[in-house]
Computed example of a mutant assay.
Amino acid sequence: MEFIVDSVEETTKLGIMLGRLVMPGDIICLIGDLGTGKTHITKGIAKGLSIDDHITSPTFTIVNEYMGRLKLYHFDVYRVNDPDEIYAIGFDEYIFSDGVSVIEWSNYIEELIPDEHISVSLEKLPELGENFRRINIVAKGKRYDYIKEISL
């Protein structure tokens, strides 16, 4: 599915819709350049999971945990230089748990991502305006057929 959004609010709204639908054990991989809205999507997912905490990107800690309808594990692997760093924090235990894992910069650790996941790519569209983004959501695996219910 492809969405064209022109505000942080629309980006967050898309995340909220996704967060309302996710199920235990879901993995959401976020891919996009700096400033494309990965953390805003994550904030929306958190809201959709009824998480009221202030969501920040865990750039230096690699993972933040939040509790809502389901536990949210928010990863930022931008600074990860070696997959062993991810294994050292118990990555498999997080992503194969009953929580929801959101992984920013997942393309940096592609070899560690299970085949079944939700891929969300974000891209700036400067030709349309400063705040415009193209957001593509792709379900990879049958378990994620439910995301067809997302619309703006």
Rank of each mutant, 00 (worst) to 15 (best):
L152D: 13
D26N: 08
G48V: 06
H74I: 13
S57P: 00
N131P: 08
S119F: 02
C29T: 06
N81L: 14
R20H: 01
F75A: 12
D98M: 03
D145E: 15
V102C: 10
R69W: 12
I41K: 08
I62Q: 01
I89D: 14
T11G: 05
R20T: 03
L30P: 07
I135C: 01
I95Y: 07
G35T: 01
D76Q: 11
I62D: 00
H117Y: 07
V102L: 06
V77S: 11
G141W: 05
W105S: 13
L72S: 03
Y108K: 15
D98C: 02
Y146C: 02
K142H: 11
S121D: 09
D145K: 02
F75Y: 09
E85W: 08
I150L: 14
T36G: 00
V8S: 10
T12C: 02
I103Y: 02
P83K: 14
G99H: 11
T39H: 05
K71T: 15
N81P: 05
I118C: 04
M1A: 13
V120C: 13
I150A: 04
R20K: 13
I51A: 02
F132P: 12
A46S: 09
R143M: 09
I95H: 11
F3Y: 09
Y146V: 05
E110D: 15
A46N: 10
F132R: 06
S151T: 08
D76M: 12
S50Y: 10
I103H: 06
L125D: 04
N136E: 14
L152I: 14
D53F: 03
L18S: 05
G15R: 11
V80E: 05
F91K: 10
L112Q: 02
G99M: 07
R133Y: 08
K140R: 15
E10G: 03
I147E: 01
G48T: 11
D98H: 06
A139Q: 03
N131K: 10
N81R: 14
S119Q: 14
E93R: 15
E85F: 11
L34P: 00
G90W: 01
E65W: 11
D115M: 10
R143Y: 04
G32M: 04
T56G: 03
D52I: 07
I27L: 12
V63D: 02
K140F: 04
E110W: 00
N136H: 06
Y108P: 05
N107Y: 00
G25A: 01
T61V: 15
P126F: 00
S97P: 11
K124S: 13
G141P: 07
R20F: 00
G99V: 15
K47F: 12
L18G: 06
K124H: 15
L125N: 03
I109L: 13
F132Y: 15
H74A: 10
I109V: 10
L34G: 00
S57D: 02
H117D: 01
I147H: 01
D76L: 09
D53I: 09
L30F: 10
P58D: 12
N64P: 03
L21T: 04
I27Q: 00
I28Y: 08
S97W: 09
I86T: 09
K13S: 12
V22T: 13
S101Q: 12
L122N: 08
V120T: 12
A88D: 15
F75C: 07
M23R: 13
P114T: 06
P126W: 01
D53Y: 03
K47P: 03
S121E: 12
I135N: 00
